[in-house]
Amino acid sequence: MSGEASLDLRLPIGGLFAVLGVMLAGYGLATASNTEMYVKSAGLNINLIWGVVMFVTGLVFLFLARRGARTT
């Protein structure tokens, strides 16, 4: 048994969510004036809203990974 896995899974999860969050939120901002596009999502700019949610989630994972790396 080689023991410890070499990669903390929280890093790629956090990284992916942070990047996707920035992409979606950025796209949401760029298309914010396009009301026609957001008719299907009940008038909500779901790209911006969900992009921010994913970005924050990503940061939480990255923070947990960093804290984990410090304690061990």
């Binding site: 048994m1 080689s2 896995a5 070499s6 990669l7």
Partner: peptide, 23 residues
């Protein structure tokens, strides 16, 4: 990227089939 990063630590059959019982 995950697959690539794990490549170096996959050395034995236990790593490959059982994750070295380490998760």
């Amino acid at each position: 990227g995950i697959g690539f990063a794990l490549r170096r630590s996959t050395k034995t059959s236990s790593d490959f089939f059982q994750s070295g019982r380490s998760l």
